[in-house]
Computed example of a mutant assay.
Amino acid sequence: ARCRRAGVPEEIDFATKPEIALQQVRETLEAGITPGIVLADAAYGKVTPWREQLAKWGLSYCVDVPEGISVWPPGSEPLPPKWSGLGRPPTRWQQTTEHHPVSAQALAKSLDANAYQAITWREGTNKPLCSRFTAVRVRVARGQQKR
């Protein structure tokens, strides 16, 4: 009823912000526009299918992720499944007490201070808005718990 009152056409279905963003990126690619790097905040970065679709399209992206998301630090990944040779081969990747994913926050805190760079992103009303940033390539540990 609200959509009708607002004049939204009947053929328009509900879509989440990540779904709308993917549609916009798809339309941009179909228009032949040369893609750059896709940048997004954690509202998009936490949506696995959204990141996976960007990767399927071969796009480079840099996204913020929530601090609690489990990730494998750079140079680390889950251990391959162990199989005794009997029965059905296992499919789940492994982790141990010594080899496991960590929270994005724990990874950020473990980095050396030199890994961060102060960046001013815009002028504020009283002063420039500035924070410290770093970029780290990680593998999201879907279905695996941080320790």
Score class of each variant (00 low, 15 high):
94 Q>G: 02
97 T>S: 15
72 W>A: 00
73 P>R: 07
71 V>F: 00
82 K>W: 15
95 Q>S: 15
96 T>M: 07
78 P>K: 06
87 G>A: 09
108 A>G: 04
71 V>K: 10
80 P>A: 01
73 P>N: 02
104 A>M: 05
102 V>T: 06
75 G>K: 14
80 P>L: 10
98 E>D: 14
106 A>E: 02
88 R>Q: 15
97 T>A: 15
100 H>G: 10
80 P>S: 07
86 L>K: 15
108 A>E: 10
104 A>T: 05
104 A>C: 09
105 Q>A: 12
92 R>C: 08
78 P>C: 04
95 Q>G: 02
89 P>E: 07
92 R>K: 15
105 Q>P: 02
88 R>W: 09
90 P>H: 14
76 S>Y: 13
88 R>N: 14
78 P>M: 11
74 P>E: 13
98 E>F: 07
86 L>N: 12
71 V>Y: 03
77 E>N: 12
73 P>S: 00
74 P>M: 06
88 R>L: 13
78 P>L: 00
83 W>A: 04
79 L>K: 13
102 V>D: 02
108 A>C: 03
102 V>E: 09
103 S>P: 03
83 W>V: 00
97 T>D: 15
100 H>W: 04
95 Q>D: 08
89 P>T: 07
87 G>F: 13
98 E>A: 11
89 P>M: 12
99 H>L: 04
95 Q>H: 10
71 V>T: 01
94 Q>F: 02
73 P>T: 04
79 L>F: 12
107 L>D: 02
89 P>A: 08
75 G>R: 12
89 P>Q: 05
80 P>I: 11
94 Q>H: 08
88 R>C: 14
96 T>W: 04
101 P>V: 00
75 G>W: 05
90 P>N: 09
95 Q>P: 00
88 R>I: 14
95 Q>C: 07
100 H>V: 07
72 W>E: 03
98 E>I: 11
83 W>H: 05
73 P>C: 01
77 E>H: 13
75 G>Y: 06
92 R>L: 10
71 V>W: 02
93 W>K: 13
101 P>R: 06
78 P>T: 08
85 G>D: 02
78 P>W: 05
